[in-house]
Simulated scan of single mutants.
Amino acid sequence: MSDNPHPLRSIVLATASFLGALYSISLASAHFNRAIRDCKDVKRRPYVVTCTACKGHGFYICKLCQGNTTIEWSPLYDPVVINPCLCPTCEGNRVQRCLNCLGKSHNDLKEMLDLLLFQATKLETLTLRTTRLV
């Protein structure tokens, strides 16, 4: 007979300790990444403006179903029967993430200034085109 009555016990213990170490490392790195992201947000806070579309919530009521979770839909042009279907925009959650701030509830001032500059240049080129046509 062998000296070790449970030959797989050492393999199971080694595997469990290895998987536990992997889990703890992944958990620590996730917390570290979150802490770095929070520090960056705190540094950026003086340069942000509250989103006007969602009023700083990050979400707003679904515009397709108006918060009812279902829409009336029929595959035919002149419907005989109208079927209630789950809203494809909010997927039944009644709210959708703000598309203006992407759910962050604020806009970066730099991004807003870049957008305004882009719109101003677009408007300037449009007015130049119309004056050339006249």
Rank of each mutant, 00 (worst) to 15 (best):
R97G: 01
S74Y: 05
S105D: 09
Q66P: 09
H106I: 10
D108R: 04
I71C: 05
I71P: 00
H106Y: 13
N83Y: 09
D78A: 02
C98W: 00
L86T: 06
G92W: 03
E91K: 14
S74K: 06
I71N: 00
L109Q: 12
L99A: 13
N68W: 07
T69M: 15
C98P: 03
D108K: 02
Y77D: 05
P79N: 04
L99S: 14
N93V: 12
C87S: 01
S105M: 09
D78S: 00
Q66H: 15
L76R: 09
Y77V: 07
P79S: 03
L76N: 11
T70N: 10
L109Y: 10
C101F: 06
P84K: 03
L109C: 14
P84A: 01
T69H: 11
Q96C: 11
H106C: 13
Q96T: 11
G92D: 02
N83G: 02
L99E: 15
C90Q: 00
N100T: 15
H106D: 11
I71R: 01
C85F: 04
G103R: 00
Q66D: 15
P79D: 03
W73Y: 11
C90D: 02
C101I: 07
P79T: 02
L86P: 01
D78T: 03
T89Q: 14
Y77L: 06
P75V: 03
W73Q: 06
L86Y: 04
V81K: 05
P75D: 01
V95C: 08
T89N: 14
C85V: 11
Q96Y: 04
P75C: 03
R94G: 01
P79M: 04
V95D: 05
R94Y: 08
R94V: 10
C101A: 08
L109N: 10
V80W: 05
I71K: 02
C65F: 08
D108P: 01
T70A: 10
P75K: 02
N68S: 15
P84E: 01
K104F: 06
E91Q: 15
C98N: 03
P88G: 06
L102C: 11
R97S: 03
R94N: 09
Q66Y: 15
N93P: 02
N107A: 10
N68I: 13
P88Q: 07
L102T: 08
W73M: 08
H106F: 11
Y77N: 03
K110V: 14
R94W: 05
C85M: 10
N68D: 15
K104R: 14
E91N: 14
R97W: 01
E91H: 13
